[in-house]
């Protein structure tokens, strides 16, 4: 009985630390990825959105508070905004001249 309880306690501790570690690591990875993508889109296109910077900042704040799933969600949002920025830059590079009056 005693041994059984020990095994359960150790298992729970191990599982929770693995789950905790994974969330921590994946949130960090997501934030770093969003940050790199944000800088890269500026380098490639000179386009940057303020909302992307805000999302990354909020993700970092959530990470510092230990809210890893929230941080990961915000980083994912930032990645989507980066993708939209890239798309805007691509579309605009092909269409801006249509707005020039003739």
């Amino acid at each position: 009985m005693k041994n059984g309880l020990r095994i359960i306690a150790v298992s729970v501790a191990l599982c929770s630390s693995v789950a905790f570690g994974a969330s921590n690591i994946s949130a960090k990875k997501a934030i770093d990825g969003a940050n790199a993508a944000y800088k890269q889109v500026a380098k490639e296109t000179s386009y940057q959105w303020t909302v992307t910077a805000s999302a990354i900042k909020a993700a970092k704040k959530a990470f510092d508070k230990g809210n890893f799933s929230e941080a990961e969600g915000l980083a994912a949002k930032a990645m989507k905004l980066v993708a939209a920025t890239k798309l805007q830059a691509k579309i605009e590079s092909e269409t801006w001249q249509m707005r020039v009056p003739k």
Binding site: Y47, W49, T50, V51, L81, A84, Q88, E92, W96, Q97, R99, V100, P101
Partner: peptide, 22 residues
């Protein structure tokens, strides 16, 4: 400068020309 004026930017997708021309 011309390209800048006519190119849409930002999340709201506006060009200078959108507000100050069209």
């Amino acid at each position: 400068g011309k390209e800048h004026f006519y190119t849409k930017r930002g999340q709201l997708n506006f060009a200078c020309a959108d507000c100050h021309m069209y």
